Every structure is written in C-alpha cells, then in structure tokens.
Simulated scan of single mutants.
Amino acid sequence: MANVLRAKAGQAVVLFNGDGNEYSAQLFEVAKRKVVVHIDSKISISIESPLSIHLGQGISRGDRMEWVIQKSVELGVSEITPLITERCGVKLSQDRWSKKHEQWQKLAIAACEQCGRNVLPTLHTPRLFADWISSSTNQVRLTLHPRAEKAFRHVSIPPAGARLLIGPEGGFSDQEIYQTEQNGFQTIQLGPRVLRTETAAITAISALQAIHGDL
C-alpha cells in the first residue's frame, strides 16, 4: 500500500482476511513500514462457486506450477494439493518444500485479491501421489488422460463436487494410471489434442465450471 501503490491517508480501501466477508475501511496512517486503517463496516459478499473442486496437481518445474495455482484460484477451486509423482521433476528437501509451499500460498492470496474472492482456497502441503489418491472422499474422482473415452459432459457430479487429478509435464506412468483406476478414479479427456500440464489444468477446471459450476 505504501511503497507500491503510494496510497495516502484518507483513501478508501476494501480488506479481506479469508473469512468470507469484505471490510470497508479508510487509511488512517501511511508510513514506510506501517499502514493503519480504520474499518467502517463488514460486508457479507460471496462469489464462491457452487461446485467444489479439489485439484490434485502433479508438481512441475519452472513457473508452470505457479501458473496453475494462480489461475485455478481465479477459476474458483476450493482446494489444491501439489502432488509428488513418479515423473515429478522437482526434488527438494523437507525445508525447501516448506518454503515452496509458503511461496505458493502467497500466490494464492494475491490471486484472491486480483479476482475478488474473499475466501482463501485451501492449499495443502505437497503430498505423495499414492497417499492422495487413496484418501477418502465423497467427491467424484476424475483423472485427466488424453486417451480416455469419456468427456466432461458425460460425468455426473455429486453435491460434494469433484476431485480432479492432473499429471506433471511428463504425465502419469502406466502404473500410476492403474493405481488411480484401482482407487475409483475415472479417466476423462479434453478432446483429441495432448495439452501441456498447465493448459490441461485450466481447461479442465473451466470445463467443470461451465458444465456444473458458475461459468
């Protein structure tokens, strides 16, 4: 507020803290390392999608993972779990995974600010692929796969929503696909073209929201 936006005392702002409300406020004091606001009122506004989507995303190298987190938050997912898969190209120590998670959390908060969401989606710490696919859920389980026969329009979504699984840039191994099927996941395709992992995530979420959500 102070160093980038150059905000001045008396300026009106809107705050959020993830509790599902917005807070109308005015800047009272603006200093280099401190900004003080006076909150005027609490406003109950919800722009959350009626469709709950839990994205299980295979971790990719570079900025692909950051792109997926940012855009999936904008598109209204309720949960994101970064997954360590067989072909995961990112190998980090536990401390570095924690720092990476903090970085992704900041991206998610910034994406909420940009798109106007006042409820932060849950961003889980990185988890092993096998642990995540075997965890209990009432959501329909979907795996994106270019050779699948079923499309999103043919999927029935229960009230609990959808658990969407997308692989890293190298895709899933045959063994991983077999494991998903053994754990109740249906394979779904997005047409005849093979999409990059970040394109696949954004397209799949958009398709679910368009057919079953709020697009």
Results as ranks from 00 to 15, higher is better:
A2P: 00
V4R: 13
A7D: 02
K8E: 11
V14F: 00
N17Q: 10
N17R: 09
G20V: 10
S24H: 11
F28M: 07
V30E: 03
V30D: 04
V30C: 12
A31N: 11
K32T: 02
R33I: 00
K34V: 04
V37C: 14
H38T: 13
I39Y: 07
S41A: 15
I43H: 12
S46K: 12
S46W: 07
I47D: 05
S49Y: 01
L51E: 06
S52Y: 06
S52W: 00
I53Y: 04
G56L: 15
G58T: 06
G62N: 15
M65E: 04
K71L: 11
L75W: 09
L75P: 04
G76M: 09
V77A: 02
T81K: 10
P82L: 12
P82S: 04
P82Y: 12
L83H: 10
C88M: 09
V90R: 10
V90K: 09
V90C: 03
V90I: 11
S93I: 02
D95W: 04
D95E: 15
S98G: 04
S98Q: 15
S98T: 11
K100V: 04
H101T: 14
Q103D: 08
W104Y: 11
Q105H: 08
A110R: 02
A110W: 01
C112K: 13
E113G: 14
Q114K: 13
R117H: 14
N118P: 03
L120C: 05
L120N: 08
P121I: 07
H124D: 03
T125H: 15
P126W: 11
P126E: 06
L128H: 12
L128K: 15
L128W: 07
A130H: 07
I133C: 08
S136I: 05
N138Y: 05
L144F: 08
H145C: 04
H145F: 06
A151H: 03
F152W: 14
F152S: 07
V155A: 04
I157C: 07
P158T: 10
G161K: 05
R163K: 13
L165C: 14
L165F: 02
L165W: 04
I166K: 09
I166C: 03
G167F: 06
G167D: 07
E169F: 09
E169T: 09
E169N: 07
G170Y: 11
S173Q: 03
Q175A: 05
E176P: 01
I177G: 01
I177W: 06
Q182H: 01
N183F: 10
F185M: 02
Q186H: 14
Q186S: 12
I188F: 05
Q189S: 14
Q189H: 03
V194S: 07
A200F: 02
A201V: 15
A201F: 03
T203Q: 01
T203D: 01
I205D: 07
S206Q: 06
S206G: 13
A207W: 02
G213S: 08
G213P: 03
D214L: 08
